[in-house]
Design a binder for these strands. Structure first.
Lengths: 192, 192, 192, 192
DNA sequence: TATGAATGAGGGTTCATTCAT
DNA sequence: CATGAATGAACCCTCATTCAT
């Protein structure tokens, strides 16, 4: 039973994320989700007790996947520039592969479903702690500009999203060159 | 006879933008809008024939205000670095003052209301043409890196949004220092 | 002022009748009526205090016109068969010229606006009294079948409506032949 | 799972017909229908996707029942006068038993819901084809007047409705005598 | 008096949720 | 446990009526 359940749960997740990326939370209905997941409307309630719960659970799941990806293959005793490049690449790849997740998060953030509590903020902070540590390490050896590390995170985030959006709008092609050009600009911005 | 009222129209605009920034398009109802605008539900239909029309009209209005602001006080025969700084500052100020507009646009983009046609893309392209020209001018005099100007626009956009978001989350204070630090990083990224 | 008022009143009457014949009472709105009458919505209320009053007033007006027409040019001391033919012709011409009135009456009768009181029934009875007298006169001289005169009225009514409807549907042409054929059948039915 | 219910469908049909006969299409609401059918408002939409669809579907259903009844128990190789009497009786009984259906049809015809297309006309034509054939057969053997058969149909229709209306208004009693008197007049009209 | 914008109750419809099968 | 019909609150929208101009 467990395996079967997990498969359905996963289908609901995918259906929700995918639908939201196409029609926003404003166009999301339980019937839609069920249909896209290939199950009956009522069955969704076996997995999530309500729409609010469903959306919040799925939001949390997206956060988990996010963190997992961001620090993939990072060895914290590697050189700062190596790690930064890796995090940047990880982020770009995450945005490319999980764009729907990002759209979902974005839609969620300003929706009536969002639980605007401190937990969430703390989760986000925690998520960027490793990156902050890498950046501070870079500052301590004079490799990176001595401005608050937050700026570098804003830059990473914002730039990444925009490039990713451009790719998904068909304005750019997601390839080696794109990533190298992007990282090159990023590095120009933060390096001492 | 009572005359159709620009003030009421403006209140509907404000109410829509403001509500969307708080509860997203998913939480937006005609009754909400009317109440926030201080008029009767039915009166909204004197100004906009349906919810779809209302949302699309208001979306267009936000685009107009956006463009207007972006090139405020720009003299195109000024020096490239002067103009770039001005555009950057304009953008930061726009995001600060019109954050709700930006949230509305963001919510709109992935909603069932979005008209995904070429007109919209063309409008956006046209909006960035002046900035592109400034950047190309900078490249022609060897002041700016010879990479496609799109990258610089992604950087401006993304960075701006993230900094602005941080301000509105209370993580940063919107002041001279913030803007100078931000522009400084931006300039490091794009300058030759 | 009186003349002007009467003109507007008449326009409201025509608009109401005409609209009802096209879209039924279910499709009738005060705004429609006003527009078709070439006046402002609010102005209708100068002449009729509410929609219910308007519809009932206009219903009564249709009844008056009806009676007026039915006995047009009848001399009650003429021969029975002459008078019957005249009433028949009058009725056919009334239905032809005032078909919209008839549709209005028909729609009214089963609508929530209908005042189902005895007054109406009495009015209708009174309307047919002269015809009944003609028919009874015919029976007394052995010209007409000795069945209750009601039957002859049902026959006149029903047949007339159907022929008229056929004309308006384009199935028949309203001319001498049609009327003669029709009356001929009617006369076959009632004559001794 | 609960299964779509023919009984509920039938209740919706009855509720719609019955309500329309009392308050017209102008007084018909989906909430009314649901209440009269003993189900929830939303449930009506499980069976009919909109009010327009509901009204049109039910209109078609009334036509089917109509035809079915009109030729009940007719053997087309019986004598013309026998068949004519039967059709007449069938029609009178139909009008008596299904008066609400007739009112519904009447209200429908001039409503904004009516689909005024050729299909409808063709359906009606087809419905009267058998009767026309009986009448023509009667003409060919010199039993019936050589006037276009349409007239006899107008007469049947119109007379029937008026007599039926009189019954329902309490002016006549629906019994053997009424029917015999009526048919007798009808036969006088059409016989050679 | 004439106008048509303003009002808000009420209608058509959707959809989260429940529940019989 | 899965299904999808049933429910009814809440949505979008209409329209009779009012009222400022």
């Amino acid at each position: 039973m467990r395996v079967k359940d997990d498969i359905k749960n996963s289908k609901i997740y995918q259906a929700t994320i995918s639908l939201t990326s196409r029609v926003g939370l404003a166009g999301l209905t339980m019937a839609n989700i069920a249909q896209a997941a290939g199950i009956a409307t009522g069955s969704v309630y076996t997995y999530y007790s309500s729409k609010v719960v469903l959306i919040n659970e799925i939001y949390k799941q997206t956060l988990s996947r996010y963190e997992e990806r961001l620090y993939d293959d990072i060895a914290f005793d590697d050189a700062v520039d190596v790690n930064l490049r890796k995090v940047f690449l990880n982020y770009m790849h995450y945005l490319q592969a999980y764009r729907e997740e990002w759209i979902f998060q974005d839609q969620y953030y300003f929706s009536p479903y969002a639980v605007k509590n401190h937990d969430m903020q703390q989760t986000t902070d925690a998520m960027f702690l490793p990156l902050t540590q890498i950046l501070e390490q870079g500052q301590s050896i004079g490799l990176i500009k001595p401005v608050p590390t937050n700026y570098f995170i804003y830059l990473l985030h914002g730039f990444g999203h925009e490039v990713s959006a451009a790719v998904h709008m068909g304005l750019e092609t997601f390839d080696e060159i794109l990533i190298e050009n992007s990282f090159s600009l990023y590095w120009s911005a933060i390096k001492q």
